[in-house]
């Protein structure tokens, strides 16, 4: 385990391969909830938290249960079940603590389960840090760190996007492009500009 590895994971997930803009994971809530900054931030913190936690949980399940038992082909079922249960828990907690936030998220909170970023990162962790179902050295900390960095990248994209879209409220955008279509075009140009980091190395 060395710090260069961690730095590489951090940089590549926060700046180069922002999950939304290069792997299209978590796109639906990204487009749907990024109209204003406050809920966008709340959503991305929730996503960051869920991604990090589920990275831990799925790694443990894979390493100590699925891999030794030779049931790795069932990983999709197990992972999504764990994530769904976990999200339900988060949902109940938010409902208790902040009913206003809860009301705002509406349909999108249960849909965090179907936020592809969460399952996507879990699967990616397994693909990247397991070789032939054996954990590579440092695999656990890499997985957790990858979860955190993906969440940070998500938050960054969400923050930029929501600020841009708040500003667009004052502009006379062509009617047929309002909302979703324009959001995609902005995302496209954002993704183009983040290509500047391509081939990054120290």
């Amino acid at each position: 385990m060395n710090s260069a590895q961690f730095l590489a994971i951090l940089i590549s997930n926060v700046f180069i391969y922002i999950v939304i803009l290069s792997r299209f994971l978590g796109l639906c809530p990204f487009i749907a909830i990024s109209k204003e900054t406050k809920p966008a931030l709340a959503m991305s913190f929730a996503v960051t938290f869920v991604i990090t936690a589920s990275s831990i949980i799925t790694w443990v399940i894979y390493r100590f249960m699925l891999a030794p038992l030779g049931m790795t082909y069932l990983r999709t079922v197990y992972f999504i079940l764990v994530i769904a249960a976990f999200v339900q828990l988060v949902e109940m907690v938010i409902k208790k603590i902040s009913p206003a936030t809860y009301r705002f998220f509406g349909i999108y909170l249960p849909l965090i389960t179907t936020n592809c970023a969460v399952l996507g990162v879990a699967v990616l962790n397994i693909d990247m840090f397991f070789v032939n179902d054996k954990a590579v050295p440092g695999s656990f900390s890499y997985s957790v760190f990858q979860g955190i960095s993906v969440g940070l990248g998500y938050t960054l994209a969400m923050l930029l996007m929501s600020a841009i879209r708040e500003r667009l409220d004052f502009c006379n955008v062509p009617k047929c492009l309002k909302d979703f279509p324009l959001a995609f075009i902005i995302a496209s140009i954002m993704s183009l500009s983040f290509m500047g980091f391509n081939g990054f190395r120290f």
């Binding site: 290069s22 009617k175 047929c176 492009l177 279509p181 324009l182 995609f184 075009i185 995302a187 496209s188």
Partner: peptide, 25 residues
């Protein structure tokens, strides 16, 4: 090449959604 990159995908879907809206209206 742009169109087989992620950014091109976002562009195509954005414009297609706009076109669909126009059609719907």
């Amino acid at each position: 090449l742009l169109f087989i990159m992620p950014s091109g995908a976002l562009l195509v879907i954005g414009l297609l959604l706009g076109l669909f809206n126009l059609f719907k209206k």
